[in-house]
Design a protein around this nucleic acid. Structure first.
Length: 285
RNA sequence: GGGCGCGUCGCAUAGCGGCAAUUGCUGUAGGCUGUAAACCUACCGUCCGUAAGGACUACGGGGGUUCGAGUCCCUCCGCGCCCA
């Protein structure tokens, strides 16, 4: 029954594993186009720090969802999802094969598993009010309003609790269950690297050489530190222009968290090199 | 040569007689319903046990006081500062 579903290839893996490169190669080989699934590469003016692919590296393959907003504006997962789906449609229209490529697990999941997130916009004032309460109070409130959701939520995560309440208060309805019926016939390819920490170190060194500090400073100047470090972008590893070791550390920790996300998905085909990937894709198509 | 101070689990830090020892970082594992490189949780001396719990080894080395010692005393070693 999944036969009718359109095919979608997803390339994922920890940061610095070589996703972009692999995606381009596969796109060249199989007539594909690439949709980026990276929460930060979405933004303009953040190139070095996000490890964004360059024009040259794209080798003529079209990339979607890069540079679609300035750091002034916060792009949310819903917006991302809409745009990505639109891009995928467009690619099908051209009779090409879409390749979703990125390291943001949540974003990938939103597309491949078709997560439907309640359309409730963040309400700053409401959040401020809720912020004053303790975690316990928030949880109790949630329990009252939506016992079901209270069971599944992380009861100690304030941010999540606030959001859940926000949805409840705004919609006055219980939070709908996460839908997970995919609209695509998915192929997940994960890049496995034994020496990922080494690769990360190398990459950070390269970023520094390419002028990372300059890029971050410019962002600070233009958009303000809070915006850059916390609000939209989360360039946290560059806090106060951290020493290189700290950036590396932060990146290593991040890549670990990425892996715990990916590990949950049993459908990922973990590969070591291009040839392996090529073979899998060929069979899939 | 004289005076003082310090040495605690990878690093940093608490502890001033009841301690397997505080807290932060690191580390390990995990979670994630419009902030996702964000945010959150658990574990982190060794061994046995599913657990409760138990056993052993630990606060620079050695000795002592005490029912009991990172904690008090003596001494040795190492480090730091000040006066000469």
């Amino acid at each position: 029954m999944s036969i009718q579903k359109p095919k979608l290839i997803t390339i994922l893996g920890p940061t610095a594993s070589g996703k972009s490169d692999l995606a381009v190669k596969l796109a060249k080989e199989f007539n594909g186009e690439i949709i980026s699934a990276d929460s930060r590469q979405i933004y303009k003016e953040m190139n070095i720090g996000t490890g964004k692919i360059t024009k040259k590296e794209m080798k003529g393959i079209k990339h979607y969802l890069l540079d679609i907003a300035t750091p002034k504006k916060q792009i949310t997962i819903t917006e991302f999802k809409e745009k990505a789906e639109k891009a995928i449609k467009e690619i099908y229209k051209k009779n090409k094969i879409p390749i979703l490529c990125g390291g943001t697990g949540f974003y990938i999941q939103a597309i491949t598993e078709n997560i439907i997130i309640p359309r409730v916009k963040p309400d700053k004032n409401l959040r401020k009010e809720l912020e004053k309460k303790t975690i316990k109070q928030l949880f109790e409130q949630l329990k009252k309003l939506d016992p079901k959701r209270s069971k599944s939520i992380d009861s100690k995560n304030k941010r999540r609790l606030i959001r859940a309440l926000e949805i409840l208060i705004k919609t006055k309805k219980p939070i709908p269950k996460l839908k997970k019926d995919s609209q695509f016939n998915n192929l997940y390819i994960g890049i496995k690297k034994e020496n990922i920490n080494e690769l990360i170190n190398k990459r950070v060194d390269k970023m520094i050489k390419q002028g990372l500090k300059k890029e971050v400073k410019a962002l600070f100047k233009k958009y303000g530190k809070t915006q850059v470090l916390k609000n939209t972008i989360g360039y946290q590893e560059f806090q106060e222009l951290n020493p290189i070791d700290k950036i590396k550390l932060h990146t290593r920790q991040f890549s670990k968290r990425q892996m715990t996300w990916f590990k949950k998905n049993p459908d990922i085909r973990w590969i070591k090199d291009y040839n392996e990937a090529k073979k899998i894709v060929k069979d899939f198509l």
